[in-house]
């Protein structure tokens, strides 16, 4: 770099954030053009209704600026976005940011909880399996993990509903935001309805992670410095936690970050199955209704989240492995 010394974290962060801007603009341009070229019309349903004269549709199209050329519409959208105006939903006739803010918390809670669950399961299982490779525990863990990530979430979701809601009648399969009750009962109802979607997403993610943690640990466990650590007479627990896991975690962190788009994809499907009012189900509904401003906003939010997680992963590297410097 121009300064021969070490670049600090904040400089690195600034540089990364500057790179984010053109990529977000690129993403938004591609999304916008694709949506504009795709067939469908937000007011198409009106065309099928004989009681609605075509003039109404024309008036609505004009009102929402749908008749302008694509590039004009794109720049209008971009300018508005820069000023913090997310647009106006054609279908719900309300501001898109309100619509998204209504939905985003649920998605983040469900995805967050499932990621935590995945980590809680994958880390100990993966590490333990790698410490005793080809033992019975390892065999069972690997096989289960394999099944876990081979089954798509829509399948496990339906299976769970069939078993736990319909046959056993333990858990509700319609997710409600307005749960009745107060205090503990309220919290319990929320947990009860979140169990299935969180487990479905968490186990899928956990399956992938378990196998990855196992192989990462296996890579490290045979290295000389581990033997050295043991030879020093360190306790096994310290060897595992401080020397093995910390080093093995570096690729795992990358994986978690890179898996985020897949998790969001899985959440879209899971939300649809369990009727979770998150941004995933909002996305599906707005795609079906050709509600362009909402589709744009949701995909854009997702893109931002994915970029954000990548950035977090890069920052975590440095903390996990000081040898990695930010340049």
């Amino acid at each position: 770099m121009f300064l021969q010394g070490k670049t600090t974290v904040s400089q690195y962060l600034l540089r990364r954030l500057l790179i984010v801007i053109p990529s977000l603009i690129g993403i938004s341009l591609v999304l916008f053009v694709l949506l504009a070229l795709a067939p469908g019309d937000p007011f198409g349903e009106l065309a099928q209704n004989p009681a609605v004269p075509p003039e109404v549709r024309a008036a609505l199209r004009e009102k929402f600026g749908l008749d302008d050329p694509i590039m004009v519409r794109y720049f209008r959208w971009l300018l508005a976005m820069l000023q913090g105006d997310w647009g106006f939903s054609f279908v719900s006739r309300m501001d898109v940011d309100t619509l998204i803010m209504q939905r985003l918390p649920v998605t983040l809670i469900v995805i967050g909880a499932s990621q935590v669950l995945a980590l809680v399961v994958a880390l100990p299982v993966g590490v333990y399996a790698a410490m005793r490779p080809y033992s019975l525990f390892d065999q069972v863990a690997t096989t289960t993990a394999f099944i876990g990530f081979s089954l798509p979430t829509f399948f496990t979701g339906l299976l769970f509903i069939l078993v736990f809601s319909i046959h056993l009648d333990w858990l509700p399969f319609v997710y409600q935001t307005n749960v009745s009750g107060t205090g503990l009962e309220y919290i319990w109802e929320h947990i009860r309805q979140a169990i299935m979607p969180v487990v479905v997403l968490g186990l899928f993610q956990g399956g992938v992670l378990t196998r990855f943690v196992r192989s990462a640990v296996l890579d490290v466990v045979r290295l000389d410095y581990v033997t050295t650590a043991r030879a020093k007479g360190l306790r096994e627990g310290v060897v595992i936690l401080k020397h093995i896991v910390r080093n093995a975690l570096i690729p795992v962190v990358t994986l978690i970050a890179l898996q985020m788009p897949i998790v969001f994809g899985g959440a879209v499907v899971t939300e649809q199955i369990f009727r979770i009012p998150g941004i995933g189900s909002l996305l599906i509904a707005s795609i079906l209704a050709n509600d362009t401003p909402v589709i744009m906003a949701v995909t854009f939010v997702t893109a931002c989240l994915v970029i954000l997680f990548n950035l977090i992963a890069d920052l975590l590297y440095g903390w996990l492995d000081p040898r990695i410097s930010y340049r």
Partner: peptide, 22 residues
């Protein structure tokens, strides 16, 4: 009164006819 949206027709039928949630 509560009108819940989302999901698909088959599971909606289930929630009424099979589990009685709705």
């Amino acid at each position: 009164f509560e009108m819940k949206g989302g999901g698909d027709a088959v599971s909606a039928a289930r929630a009424v006819l099979q589990t009685g949630e709705y």
